[in-house]
Design a protein around this nucleic acid. Structure first.
Length: 470
RNA sequence: CGGGAAGUAGCGCAGCUUGGUUAGCGCGCCUGGUUUGGGACCAGGAGGCCGCGGGUUCGAAUCCCGCCUUCCCGACCA
């Protein structure tokens, strides 16, 4: 019989389920300082795969990687009024170093617009230097009052892009391109996660931005998670840091800048968007291990068959395959691989083997196939592709089932208890935002009726998506 | 940062009200054996500054004070 669940069921206590998965799948631990996180090898493997998928997409848009310092002079933050106001509550500040009190405190970067702005000003001379397209992979620190592993930690890992352009239009185009071709493409194609794309209402904008675009995903408990953001910074930072260039007419002009980021929060989103009561469920495109071959018994014939199958699968096409030798009980090993979310399980046992068969099981649907050994590579290939599509599709069905179109704020509050509510932005407004906030809800994004990204919040006929969120 | 709950072996917990020699249980871990088609069983074993610091006391896991950490609910955020 199926064993009793190892994890707290989602329906019983979703936050507890999340913690159980993080612990039992060996993804992360709390660090010794409140809010810090130790990312364990399995969690880091997921992050590394996310990094390489995102990094490749970033480079395809023309940006180059660079690295800027962790320590930033405090004075930099005061150069942009909204920026300092937005970030000061979460700054970690170094006041002592080298055994002495510092004359100017040093901020541990919460984000790098300021330092990068300083150097953009230095590097940009002419319109020929533009656009300047930079990205960095780094850790940042934002002091968190209510930390949660991956979702909200005082130190987290991310990628932050920073660009400078000759015109608002060019900056806007590029930020939008990043949003669609990097973030949305990654989320839908690799993480198999449908998104709602839109812009943040002014109240939710990044501190110092003129426009913030977001990719909002829905978790299995119906709450929203902001998976990535792109900001148009207008000339706010260009003014603060003197990012000027000389145009074709020889006149000095101010740049327009952008910034955009995605963080280790994505790992939390992955867990909560696809996970079930058995643990993680990984989309094949992301999974560090796509196929686990399980020896049902620790038996020479079985072990040989497993090894042969492993060689075939990892050689023929480079599937990521692991062989699990037959030590330990079968049920236990199956459960462990399920918790880790490995997409396909190939079970090799003496009974099937006698008939030249093995059993292949899908992690997402638990569907089981009895298949001739020779047919395994083809079936595995098909199933991995099918699962990638199916996982996106079922996440989409789930999301749409929990998304309601409503015509009043009352109905929106009702619908957003455990899902998303789509309501006309004009029914919300500043007063409406204050009201839904008392229900622990926010406007996650504004989008056009057809789901596309508006240029600004003043466009007529916009839809507000209201939800509780992480 | 406010309101609530809790910190005892890697994890989950009992013991605390009513202070008293070697601090228990389940799971996990180690050794040996039997097992293995959905979290196996038997036997033996290792593992504790009882969150940290101070106080009360002949004596503190237990009573008192302070701090730290975790979880839940809010305000702030990737």
């Amino acid at each position: 019989m199926a064993g009793q669940s190892v994890l707290t069921p989602q329906s019983e206590d979703f936050p507890k389920w999340y913690q159980d998965v993080v612990a039992k799948a060996e993804m992360a631990d709390n660090g010794p300082v409140r809010g810090t996180m130790v990312i364990r090898p399995y969690g880091y493997a997921l992050w590394e795969r996310m990094q390489s998928a995102i990094d490749a997409r970033i480079k395809a848009t023309g940006a180059q990687n660079a690295y800027f310092p962790l320590f930033i002079p405090e004075s930099y933050f005061h150069k942009e009024a909204e920026h300092v106001e937005g970030f000061s509550p979460e700054l970690a500040v170094v006041t002592h170093a080298g055994g002495e009190e510092l004359t100017e405190p040093i901020v541990v970067r919460p984000t790098s617009e300021t330092v990068i702005g300083e150097f953009m000003a230095k590097w940009i001379q002419s319109y020929r230097d533009l656009p300047l397209l930079l990205n960095q992979w780094a850790n940042v620190v934002r002091w968190e009052l209510r930390p949660r592993l991956f979702l909200r930690s005082s130190e987290f890992l991310w990628q932050e892009g920073h660009t400078a352009h000759v015109s608002a239009q060019d900056a806007s185009n590029y930020a939008t391109r990043i949003h669609l071709e990097v973030y949305n493409d990654f989320l839908t194609q690799v993480l198999a996660l449908p998104t709602f794309l839109g812009i943040k209402p002014p109240s939710e904008r990044f501190a110092g931005a003129t426009n913030t675009m977001t990719c909002e995903g829905m978790m299995r408990d119906g709450k929203a998670l902001q998976m990535a953001t792109s900001h148009e910074l207008g000339q706010n930072f260009a003014k603060a840091f003197d990012i000027y260039y000389q145009n074709e007419e020889g006149q000095s002009a101010l740049c327009f800048t952008t910034s955009w980021g995605a963080s280790t929060r994505l790992v939390g989103g992955l867990i909560m968007a696809h996970g079930d009561d058995q643990g993680l469920v990984l989309p094949p495109a992301l999974a560090p291990t796509q196929v686990v071959i399980i020896a049902v018994r620790d038996d020479d014939q079985v072990t040989e068959a497993c090894a042969a199958l492993r060689t075939t699968l990892s050689a023929e096409r480079p599937y990521r395959v692991v062989a699990d030798s037959g030590r330990g009980s079968f049920g236990r090993r199956v459960t462990d691989w399920e918790i880790k979310g490995v997409p396909l399980r190939v079970e090799v046992g003496p009974r099937d083997l006698a008939q030249g068969l093995v059993s292949v099981v899908r992690r997402d649907t638990h569907e089981q196939f009895s298949v001739a050994i020779a047919d395994v590579p083809a079936l595995v290939g098909d199933l991995l592709e099918t699962m990638q599509r199916d996982m996106f599709q079922s996440a989409l069905v789930f999301r749409d089932a929990r998304t309601s179109d409503v015509t009043s704020l009352d109905a929106a509050i009702d619908a957003a208890q455990d899902g998303f509510a789509r309501v006309a932005w004009e029914h919300v407004g500043v007063d409406g935002e204050a009201r839904i906030r008392t229900q622990a809800m926010t406007v996650r994004c504004l989008q056009r009726r057809d789901g596309s990204i508006p240029h600004n919040d003043l466009e007529a006929g916009l839809i507000a998506i209201i939800a509780k969120s992480y």
